[in-house]
Amino acid sequence: MMDRQAYDQLDRQLTKEERKEMFQEYAKTKDQELRDILIEEHLYIAEILSKKYANRGIDYDDIFQVASIGLIYGVERYDPSKGYEFSSFATPTIIGEIKKYFRDKGWTIRVPRRIQELSKKINNAKVTLAQENQKTPTIKDIADYLNVSQEDILESMEASKVYSPTSLDLKFEGSGDDKEVNLSDLIGEDEPYFNQIEVNDFIEKAMEKLNDVEKTILIDRYYNKKTQVAIAEKLDISQMTVSRIEKKVLEKIRKEAYKTANV
């Protein structure tokens, strides 16, 4: 089994089979070196998911740190004997940690308690003074009512704007022929590889069910971009046989995809 020193000397990522063997070994031994290697090998998942939730009021680095913690939980809890791919198991675990982090932020980040308490008092004072005087209270009115300085009132009101997260469902009027758009449509950026995680898992599982000839034809046709004639020469079979096997393999994958989508 590969140890830390051997891993550090590698000039490549582990193969799927190497990762699978390492997960199996870790499930038995709980060796910390294996755990660390597996975490490093799958940090790309935490990175992809962190980018998905960036630009929503919290720094990317903070989100990535939380996602990495979720990844650690995933590595520690993953049971390879269940048969599903690690990325399929880890992705919802990481997303759960990120969403929990967003929920727990409340006002978002490190707001002094006195600001939070004064903000509540200001809101109550606004309602009370507006009812009593039948007009919108000024900063001075609120400060006199709460017996605090106007500077404190202004500080708390500004802090509320800065630290209170704006709902992603907030709507803006579009320009021209555009209709209303949500704030969530204007921020962030879709990570092109986000959905690719599950697709890769599906393809890897489908490939495991193919024989060597079928794998060669599929890889050469759709990854190496070779013609059926070139593949036929390589395998020393007819071009018609290559075409027949290719159609058979694609039909297998279509059926598997349909089955997976309807589970």
Rank of each mutant, 00 (worst) to 15 (best):
G70F: 07
G70E: 07
G70T: 10
L71N: 06
L71F: 01
L71M: 10
I72D: 01
Y73I: 06
Y73C: 12
G74T: 03
V75P: 02
E76I: 03
R77P: 01
Y78T: 02
Y78S: 03
P80N: 08
P80E: 07
S81Y: 09
K82W: 08
K82R: 14
Y84I: 04
Y84V: 00
Y84H: 05
Y84C: 04
Y84E: 04
E85T: 13
E85G: 04
F86A: 00
S87E: 14
S88I: 03
A90Y: 02
T91E: 03
T91A: 09
T91K: 12
T93M: 07
T93S: 00
T93K: 03
I94S: 00
I94W: 00
I94G: 01
I95N: 14
I95T: 04
G96Q: 11
G96N: 03
E97C: 14
I98T: 08
I98P: 06
I98D: 01
K100R: 15
Y101F: 05
R103K: 13
R103A: 13
D104W: 07
K105S: 09
G106L: 07
G106A: 12
G106T: 05
T108M: 10
T108N: 10
I109Y: 06
R110F: 11
R110H: 11
R110Q: 12
R110K: 15
R110W: 06
V111M: 04
V111L: 08
P112Q: 14
R113H: 15
R113D: 15
R113Y: 01
R114V: 05
Q116T: 10
Q116M: 14
E117T: 15
L118N: 14
L118I: 15
K120I: 10
K120R: 15
K121P: 03
K121S: 14
K121T: 14
I122H: 12
N123G: 11
N123D: 10
N123A: 07
N124E: 15
N124F: 14
A125Q: 08
A125C: 12
V127I: 11
V127H: 03
T128Y: 12
T128D: 14
